[in-house]
Write a protein that binds this DNA or RNA. Sequence first.
DNA 1: CCCGGGCTCCACCCTCGGGCCGACGCCGCC
DNA 2: GGCGGCGTCGGCCCGAGGGTGGAGCCCGGG
Lengths: 222, 222
Amino acid sequence: MAGAAVGPGLPVMVRVVLADDQRIVRDGLVTLLGLLPGIDVVGAAADGGAALDLVAEHRPDVLLTDLRMPGVDGVEATERVRAEHPGTAVVVLTTYVDDEAVLPALRAGAAGWLSKDADAEAIGRALHAAAAGQATLDPAVLARLVAAAPVPAAAPPDGLTPREVEVLALIAEGLSNGQIARRLVVSEATVKTHVNHLFAKAGLRDRAQAVHYAYRHGLAGS
Amino acid sequence: MAGAAVGPGLPVMVRVVLADDQRIVRDGLVTLLGLLPGIDVVGAAADGGAALDLVAEHRPDVLLTDLRMPGVDGVEATERVRAEHPGTAVVVLTTYVDDEAVLPALRAGAAGWLSKDADAEAIGRALHAAAAGQATLDPAVLARLVAAAPVPAAAPPDGLTPREVEVLALIAEGLSNGQIARRLVVSEATVKTHVNHLFAKAGLRDRAQAVHYAYRHGLAGS
DNA sequence: CCCGGGCTCCACCCTCGGGCCGACGCCGCC
DNA sequence: GGCGGCGTCGGCCCGAGGGTGGAGCCCGGG
């Protein structure tokens, strides 16, 4: 065995189109990635529009793209490639890992986020992974993603009864007492009782604080 | 450049300890991964405790572990490995990609999440990536992560002025009009004006709804 | 120059929310 | 049986919250 980029068998070639507006980076990537076994760079574009054309023409396994480009930027290019050519995975290669475009890009369907600090091997590995359906992320990006996810604390923290939690969730939706009453098919007086009880237990004064509390404790209906 | 399992050159070996309570899986992994170039399985454990011992003994580059194990489970093992042996990355290999343990595991420092549907090559690639500091995720897991992240439209809310956004953020903290007034060093009347304005613009009735709105638009103070 | 928008303040009104009390039926537990 | 917690109601009070109208200031743009 041994062979291909990673692993045995026939050297499965991964066909790649890359996009970067900086000529040095572009030429460097073509050269470096071309030296890797299992990587076949079939096109290189200087902007998103040209990248889309190349993808349409060559139907590569992976598009490796920068984000900041003139014209069609990386996020938009990602969206369109994923929509028009589902067989082509997209890997983002950018300078800054802490970019606020992380979420938009991943939401657009990117299957990877690499820093330009990465060496050719790492990029090649990510390209193979993307072609195989795996996603590769820079650790900082992963940390950012994980940090962005809401709190794990799905447990009812204080001594709230199930009914009270239910009422709290509806308060968090912005419903009034009357609306909650109709939703739960009970009297508004009952709702007020529950509200007062859960306020006392959780140390809340407002229903605004209640919404805040609900969100911070993962009780919001997402 | 070039090298290791992915690529030519000197075969940089990645030393791996793996943990899985199912004997078949364990033995299968030892065999299959052992066949891959660049992968050196230096130990295999049937539970988390044994895995921790093996990691302490061999100081591997990567621990490849299942989550559901008797005794010390995968998440706890991940935490302890990351804390006690920062040089050892952890990759989770599990049956279900939609497990609710995704976030806890990644929060604990896991640098990867693979499905047992993955083939040996993919696992080997993820192990190399982990050893190199990259994270590899099953696409379903990445999708789940991205979906879990808030901020569906964190950018520009409605025609809210900066001041109004500021007031809204404080409302989301659960502060009363008076508290907001003192915080912003303005009159309470001013606060009420801002509140009424932003309510009208955003179509809100309650301050409860306002908190809801703020959270759903990423204006909450994290 | 005047106009418009943003920020600041004031006064008034009224509804809803929240605090407090008591009440009843239904459970499970001692 | 008695006790306590939970869920369900009712009534009362009152203050904060929300709605409306008006006013002044400063700034940038037509």
